[in-house]
Amino acid sequence: MSKTIFITGTSTGFGKLTAITLSNAGHTVIAGMRGTNGKNEAVAKELAALSNVEVVDIDVTNDESVTKAFEQTLAKHGTIDVLINNAGVAGYGVWESWTLDQIRNMFEVNFYGVIRTYQAVLPSMRKAKNGLIINLTSGASGHTLPFMGPYLASKFGIESITEGIQDELSEFGIENVSIQPGVYPTEMNNGQKSGLQADKADIIAEYGEEAAAKFNALGGALFGKMAQYDMNPQTIADGILSLVNMEKGTRPLRLPLDAIAQGTDQEFITARAEIKAKWLSAYSN
């Protein structure tokens, strides 16, 4: 059955691929992006030309923009069956070399942006007693890596939202899933999107060549694996389509999609769930 699906961050990468994939599957897609009359005008027109796709301007860092986009969508379509929180920004650098303002900028997109969309869509989903919210996090968002601290902290925050809100919304028939991608050759990773980088140049210089060498080694390993496993971003779009099409009540809380992890991501998810169950049992007895 066709669903009305709102996706954030559709100008590039996973978001654009997902909009196309869901449209081709017959769903009504609300493709959200910034700058539809500016820097993203060309891709906005490209997506709007597809069947079942409507492009809306939304800046997830702006309260008014998010509220307006969702109000307009609900006024036209009556309901939003699925929300896909895809908009995000990456960034790198040693923890000490980030200013608080730059970390806030990261969280405005990756963390608070998701909270804004939840608050905009939940009243209508609760009224309908139905809904699915899919949040894109990271394959490493259950732990962390050097030089990626603020980014992974923001993504782990979304894991926390997804897990915590699942029980709160169960009586309203609203499901939540986090998709945990690995490293894929999207604009976020190939240099086409600049992202938000650590911005204390003097601190970066003090860490010197040793830190730079460690960072380059980590990046080289990640990108080498990406090539070795031929990581295709379409995997994420297809995974989202499979979640949308799943029978209600059968969707997992977390869906890892990372061939490089060779199953260790699912192993980690399972172990964490088992330990949580023991912890809850200890506190309830």
Rank of each mutant, 00 (worst) to 15 (best):
12 T>C: 10
210 E>L: 12
245 N>Q: 15
136 L>Q: 10
226 M>F: 03
220 G>S: 00
122 L>H: 00
31 A>S: 15
81 D>R: 00
53 V>Q: 05
149 G>M: 10
253 L>G: 13
243 L>Y: 01
122 L>N: 00
96 E>N: 06
272 R>T: 15
241 L>E: 01
70 F>Y: 11
129 K>D: 03
198 A>K: 04
262 Q>D: 13
268 F>G: 11
195 G>Y: 00
196 L>K: 10
132 L>N: 00
146 P>Q: 01
57 D>S: 15
205 A>N: 13
159 E>D: 14
2 S>E: 13
16 K>Y: 08
219 G>K: 09
180 Q>K: 13
94 V>A: 14
127 K>I: 02
28 T>I: 09
130 N>V: 04
129 K>T: 07
112 Y>Q: 10
161 I>W: 08
172 F>V: 12
81 D>H: 02
281 S>I: 06
237 A>V: 02
209 E>K: 13
114 V>D: 04
118 Y>M: 14
241 L>W: 04
158 I>Y: 09
159 E>R: 13
96 E>C: 04
13 G>T: 05
217 A>V: 00
168 E>G: 11
35 G>Q: 13
34 R>N: 09
238 D>E: 15
84 I>M: 05
234 Q>E: 07
19 A>W: 06
235 T>G: 05
73 T>C: 04
174 I>D: 03
172 F>H: 15
132 L>C: 00
41 E>N: 11
171 E>K: 15
131 G>F: 00
166 Q>E: 13
3 K>P: 05
40 N>Q: 09
192 Q>W: 04
208 G>Y: 06
216 N>H: 08
207 Y>M: 13
82 V>E: 01
87 A>R: 06
39 K>G: 12
75 A>K: 14
272 R>A: 15
18 T>V: 03
129 K>I: 03
4 T>D: 07
183 V>N: 14
102 Q>C: 07
89 V>M: 08
55 V>A: 05
232 N>H: 08
72 Q>W: 02
86 N>C: 09
209 E>R: 08
115 I>D: 05
119 Q>Y: 06
193 K>G: 06
34 R>G: 06
248 K>W: 07
109 V>D: 01
44 A>I: 05
69 A>V: 03
27 H>L: 04
44 A>S: 13
114 V>L: 05
165 I>K: 11
63 D>E: 15
